[in-house]
């Protein structure tokens, strides 16, 4: 059951965030809690989580699998209702999905019954209408020209992921929520996709919340890397990535990158040991 059927008192507590820049796409997690309750067994997925993502910032959310990353993203997207606390976007509490907050899923979710072009035009068709030639130019940019009339099942994994990114861009969201979008790709395809994403982000002024369990990917892409604790998820540490842009995949060989990676890994290691001790104690 989705949150839409569920009347609650969620709204109206947050004061509008001061917007001094005129930019949009700021995300604030305010004491976010999410508990799953399948048949009475309590799964606390996220507990008392606070995080601020500035408008047009690129933040990576890094954490081991099962720590609650997808849950956080689904709360921001408006799919799940927080058990406690709230998600505030540009001063307004999130209650429903919104085209301002676009989502790329972990597994590819192009509509299999629509052609690539129909997929890319889906968002605009749902509201303001389709601008002739726009889908083609976005597909072109993603290296998918000639595949407009193909169905998703006819494309390789990397091409499907590019098409899904194209579908998102065609809808022009202020915020891109990406849930381990490249984790299923082979190393080479992954690198191409990372480059493409950075290109698009550096040009378009969007906020990106990028979920990953890959330390190098997080540092390569993000302005800041927020590292989560093991379940129940909280923010353990936030690392500023002070590496100049535009970045290309070669930065992974620089000393600064290595330093940052070691820092992130030591936080993760510390957390893993803590989680292990907890288990032993239990």
């Amino acid at each position: 059951m989705s949150k839409h059927d569920d009347p609650t008192d969620d709204a109206s507590t947050a004061e509008p965030a001061p917007d001094t820049t005129g930019k949009t796409g700021a995300i604030a997690l305010d004491n976010l809690n999410k508990t799953y309750d399948p048949e009475g067994e309590h799964v606390v997925a996220v507990e008392d989580m606070d995080l601020d993502v500035a408008a047009e910032e690129f933040v990576a959310l890094l954490g081991p699998s099962g720590c609650g990353k997808s849950t956080v993203l689904e709360c921001i997207a408006g799919y799940l209702e927080p058990t406690e606390g709230e998600v505030v976007v540009d001063g307004t509490p999130v209650t429903d999905p919104d085209p301002k907050r676009g989502v790329v899923f972990q597994e590819n979710r192009l509509f299999p019954w629509k052609t690539i072009k129909e997929n890319v035009e889906f968002g605009p068709r749902m509201h303001e209408g389709v601008e002739e030639g726009r889908a083609e130019s976005i597909l072109d940019e993603m290296g998918l020209d000639g595949f407009e009339d193909a169905y998703p099942s006819e494309l390789s994994g990397g091409m499907q992921q590019r098409a899904e990114l194209a579908r998102l861009l065609a809808n022009d969201p202020a915020i891109m929520l990406m849930d381990e979008p490249f984790s299923a790709l082979d190393a080479l395809t992954k690198e191409i996709m990372q480059k493409k994403l950075l290109e698009v982000w550096e040009r378009d002024n969007r906020t990106v919340l990028f979920i990953t369990h890959d330390v190098e990917e997080a540092i390569l892409l993000a302005d800041r890397v927020a590292i989560m604790t093991a379940r129940p998820g909280q923010i353990k540490d936030v690392i500023d990535v002070d590496i100049d842009r535009p970045r290309d995949p070669e930065v992974v060989t620089t000393d600064r990158f290595t330093e940052l990676r070691e820092r992130a890994l030591s936080v993760i290691r510390e957390e893993a040991e803590r989680a292990l001790e907890q288990e032993d104690g239990a």
């Binding site: 999905p97 919104d98 979710r109 509509f111 889906f122 579908r167 809808n171």
Partner: peptide, 12 residues
């Protein structure tokens, strides 16, 4: 995820 994707693209 399919209906979710549609909603996040603006479908009612």
């Amino acid at each position: 995820e399919y209906p979710r994707a549609a909603q996040s693209l603006g479908a009612n």
